[in-house]
Simulated scan of single mutants.
Amino acid sequence: MGFLHQTGKSLLSLVSADPQYPAALRAFLGQTAPAVVSALGDPALFDSHPLALFCSARCPGSLIVQATDLAHALADRGAAVIGGFHTPVERACLEILLAGAGPLIVCPARGMVKTIPAEFRQPLAAGRLLLLSPFAESERRVTAELAAARNRFVAALAARVIFIHAAPGGRTEALATEVIGWGKPVYTLAHPDNRNLVDGGAMDVCTLVGR
Rank of each mutant, 00 (worst) to 15 (best):
T87Y: 03
T207G: 15
H72N: 10
L11Q: 12
L70D: 09
E137H: 09
A101N: 10
R26W: 10
I162D: 01
P103W: 01
A149H: 14
D193A: 14
T32M: 03
R140D: 13
P117Y: 12
A125R: 13
I162T: 00
I116F: 10
H165Y: 05
F3V: 11
Q31A: 15
S56P: 02
G2R: 13
L11D: 04
F163T: 02
A125K: 06
L97R: 04
E137L: 08
Q122W: 11
E137N: 07
A79E: 07
Q20S: 12
S10G: 11
T68F: 01
I96C: 03
L97H: 03
L51I: 06
L104R: 03
A149T: 09
A118L: 07
E137S: 13
A149P: 11
D18Y: 00
A73F: 15
L98Y: 02
R91E: 08
V65H: 12
A99I: 04
P19T: 07
P134M: 07
V89Y: 01
V142R: 04
C55I: 06
A149I: 09
A149L: 14
R141K: 15
A167T: 14
A80K: 02
Q66R: 15
G169E: 07
G30Y: 12
F54W: 03
R77K: 13
L14V: 00
A92K: 05
V142Y: 03
I116R: 04
V205L: 08
E137P: 04
L45V: 00
T188C: 15
L146T: 08
P108W: 10
V179N: 06
G127Y: 02
L132K: 02
T172Q: 06
N196L: 09
K184D: 02
L74W: 01
F135R: 02
F163G: 04
L98D: 01
L53R: 06
D69T: 15
D204V: 11
A57Q: 08
A144E: 08
L74I: 11
F120C: 05
G102R: 00
S16F: 13
L104W: 04
A35T: 13
L131W: 05
L29N: 10
P134V: 05
A126M: 09
P123T: 00
A99T: 08
L4N: 13
R211T: 15
V142W: 01
F3Q: 13
A23D: 12
R110W: 00
A202N: 07
M112S: 02
A35L: 12
